[in-house]
């Protein structure tokens, strides 16, 4: 009986949630320049945003962000999308984030989530994990992991969002 109740309430909660579009949590991260930034202040003037959780030690994450970097200009021209890369590097590798990002020529907005506060708040258990945020700041799509070619699927989702 208790078990049934647990399962029932959990399912109900999940069902209940999926019906709503989620907003970004009230969590502070840091910029590469050491400034504190509340993630709810993200803004792209009504155009969509992609938020990607990554780390300097994560191969598939770098693969994903490097693949997008090649087509980023085209994506921006066509849809106005902006990419937000959230590094979950801790104090072991945090000092490598800026050198890696700059040497890679990434044009993304980079934030540091050193204590994993944002990662936990967004239910990210493994990286990479990519979220698509619409022009009103609501999370409309997300995807775990990266395999070659996933960026094309992501771009389709962005196009769908813009053409709505």
């Amino acid at each position: 009986m208790k078990k049934a109740l647990i399962i029932f309430s959990t399912l109900f909660l999940i069902a209940n949630t999926n019906a709503q579009e989620k907003s970004l949590p009230n969590i502070e991260v840091k910029t590469l320049k050491g400034k504190t930034f509340n993630i709810q202040d993200l803004d792209n003037e009504g155009s969509p945003m992609v938020m990607s959780f990554w780390a300097t030690w994560c191969k598939p994450c770098k693969k994903e962000l490097n693949a997008i970097a090649e087509v980023y200009e085209d994506w921006q021209d066509e849809t106005g999308v902006k990419l937000i890369a959230i590094s979950i590097d801790d104090s072991r590798s945090m000092s490598k984030v800026a050198p890696y990002v700059n040497s890679s020529d990434w044009e993304y907005e980079i934030y540091l989530d050193q204590n994993s506060d944002l990662k936990r708040a967004m239910g990210v258990s493994t990286v990479p994990h990519t979220f698509l945020i619409n022009g009103n700041g609501k999370i409309v799509w997300n995807h775990k992991g990266y395999i070659d070619g996933d960026e094309e699927k992501l771009f389709e989702e962005i196009q769908n969002l813009v053409s709505k």
Binding site: A98, P99, N102, S103, D105
Partner: peptide
């Protein structure tokens, strides 16, 4: 740390 475009 020092970094610039293409180098870090």
């Amino acid at each position: 740390t020092y970094s610039q475009r293409g180098f870090g």
